[in-house]
Design a protein around this nucleic acid. Structure first.
Length: 418
RNA sequence: GUGGGUGUAGCUCAGGUGGCAGAGCGCCAGGUUGUGGUCCUGGAUGUCGGGGGUUCAAGUCCCCUCACUCACCCCA
């Protein structure tokens, strides 16, 4: 083969893609019940939106963006995440001038120039949900509950919810300075020392044992929250308790993107190795202002579809996907094939999922096709049946076969399938 | 980006020391000329990831390259 998909681009093909579709559908159902509206936003945006919204200091912006110049000389970037674009759209269309919070969700591919491996791709897929314009712990917990419920509905049992508060513009700077002071006294490599100055919270997240050992006694944000943040966070935990959603306090949990404030959470799966984060989100009360909008608090999350697929496989969960075919046509000979072709089209028009054997297959091969299609019924049409203006209707589960006049096939099938 | 591992049929993978490209599953056909799933028999399918080199001879050895993968970094 002379072409292959670009490095790191994750693709889904049948039958696996059916599972992929099914888990997206379940999410759409779950968020619909919770009052979130679907939004379809730009796949690429003005580069500055991400630079300001996500933050220049983040790795995502500084070294992982797919940025290009279009023919008009504009700098554009393939979205590396959803939130900045969704908030931009909410502001652009004035959704925030209506009832608050604005509750929206979206989904699709996102792009980061990373070294790919399983569960980490350059084009990958996320589900995204945002509740914008309300500063209420109940909204934070609602979003978490939606994600939690979705994981449960898929049959995943080993997802963990990690929770932390990152403070606000009042208390975080004080903590940040404290932490920097502590970190500067440690024996760290150059890159990490640079991170102390740019994004010190991230150092706490470092997985290397020699770093972990040194930050063991680092000051924690939880001990430096202001009264407002503390009571907000306590309320979030109470409400999680009300919904019986188990969580683990994770005092070192930080999020990679600059805009997060207060509530920060992550969904983790123990069977995914280094790519254990299958979803994450939090509150971003300063984001709107950072991209030139009014003060508008918000909370949301992004869930990794690819990692969710892997988690399902690792837990051995098989999602049942409804058979795509209910009735399968088995024609014998050219005349029958032509008649069957329009019969199948007619059945589809009547709302019945129908397919047929193509390519002049023999009876045996065509029946095999019927079997593999997952169809409940086969329609067998040969010369004898054509003469009789009838078709043989075979129930593939019981092997029972009856003759049905061609004119009544659709009605008979509708009755049997209902 | 850094450091390891892997790459052989559609899929999962065998192929000591260089010497005829293989198995299982799947696919196709026949057994059963108008009946699937089970069973039996037969068949097709390969740039051995790609390029270069060594050699009488390379899937096998060497170099380069691409992809996947594991860990770090980072994150979904």
């Amino acid at each position: 083969m002379s072409f292959q998909a670009p490095k790191g681009v994750k693709e889904y093909i049948p039958p696996q893609a059916e599972v992929y579709q099914a888990i997206r559908r379940r999410f759409a159902e779950a968020v619909g019940r919770a009052g979130y509206g679907y939004l379809e936003t730009a796949v690429f945006e003005d580069t500055q939106l991400f630079a300001r919204g996500v933050g220049e200091s983040t790795d995502v912006v500084s070294k992982e963006m797919y940025t290009f110049t279009d023919r008009g000389g504009r700098s554009l970037t393939l979205r590396p995440e959803f939130t900045a674009g969704v908030v931009r759209a909410v502001l652009e269309y004035g959704l925030h001038r209506g009832q608050l919070p604005v509750k929206v969700w979206t989904e699709g591919p996102v792009f980061r120039a990373e070294a790919p491996q399983e569960g980490r791709y350059r084009q990958f897929y996320q589900l995204d949900l945002e509740a914008i314009g309300s500063e209420d712990p109940a909204v934070d917990v609602e979003t978490i509950a939606v994600a939690w419920g979705w994981y449960a509905s898929l049959g995943l049992t080993r997802v963990r919810l990690l929770l932390n508060s990152l403070g606000c513009r009042e208390c975080r700077p004080i903590y940040r300075a404290r932490l920097q002071e502590f970190l500067r006294g440690l024996d760290l490599d150059e890159a990490t020392r640079a991170r102390i100055e740019i994004n010190p919270l991230r150092v706490l997240d470092d997985k290397r044992p020699e770093v972990q050992r040194q930050v063991e006694n680092a000051p924690l944000i939880g001990d430096h929250l202001c009264a407002g943040c503390k009571s907000y966070h306590d309320r979030v935990r109470e409400l999680l308790g009300d919904l019986s959603i188990p969580w683990e306090d994770s005092p070192r949990l930080v999020r990679g993107l600059d805009y997060y404030t207060r509530t920060a959470f992550e969904f983790d799966h123990p069977l995914l190795g280094a790519q254990s984060g299958i979803g994450g989100g939090g509150r971003y009360d300063g984001l709107s202002e950072a991209i030139g909008g009014p003060a508008l608090p918000g909370i949301g999350f992004g869930l990794g579809l690819d990692r969710t697929m892997i988690a399902l496989a690792r837990e051995g969960v098989e999602l049942t996907v409804p058979p795509r075919c209910q009735v399968y046509g088995v024609p014998l000979g050219e005349d029958a094939a032509r008649r069957m072709f329009s019969l199948v089209a007619g059945l589809r028009a009547e709302g019945i999922a129908a397919d047929m054997a193509y390519g002049g297959k023999g009876l045996k091969g065509a029946m095999k096709g019927a079997d593999r299609s997952g169809a409940r019924f086969a329609l067998i049409l040969g010369e004898r049946d054509l003469q009789a203006h009838a078709v043989q209707l075979k129930d593939l589960t019981t092997a029972e076969q009856t003759e049905v006049p061609l004119a009544q096939v659709a009605d008979v099938l509708k009755g049997k399938l209902s």
